[in-house]
């Protein structure tokens, strides 16, 4: 079985970062990755975890997992899409 956690290329801690700047920082971090690489983002509970994963999916990336951490924040693993779609 593939364990995505072993593949994490970069982690972006977005605790305390509200919408939509958490999405902006996620996109900046994703832009630095190569297609297929995995980014871990740490999102606050509430609107951030309810919004950012969906937006990331709409851009064509794959959300591999969402795991709540002991402090209530979420670890979300995202695999960068083979190519960024021009018009989703």
């Amino acid at each position: 079985m593939i364990n995505p956690e072993r593949e994490i290329t970069a982690t972006k801690n977005l605790r305390g970062v509200n919408c939509p700047m958490n999405l902006v920082y996620t996109k900046v971090a994703m832009a630095a990755l190569k297609p297929g690489e995995v980014l871990e983002i740490i999102l606050d509970n509430g609107p951030p975890i309810n919004n950012v994963p969906g937006s990331v999916k709409k851009e064509g990336h794959e959300v591999l997992s969402q795991t709540q951490l002991t402090d209530g924040a979420w670890s979300v693993l995202v695999r960068k899409s083979p190519q960024t779609p021009k018009s989703p």
Partner: peptide, 23 residues
């Protein structure tokens, strides 16, 4: 490279799927 202020300034462009950081 964008400063935090620049990311905030251009955030409404960057969150557009068609524009993004590359745009």
């Amino acid at each position: 490279e964008y400063s935090a202020a620049q990311l905030e300034r251009y955030s409404r462009h960057i969150i557009l799927a068609e524009v993004g950081v590359e745009g």
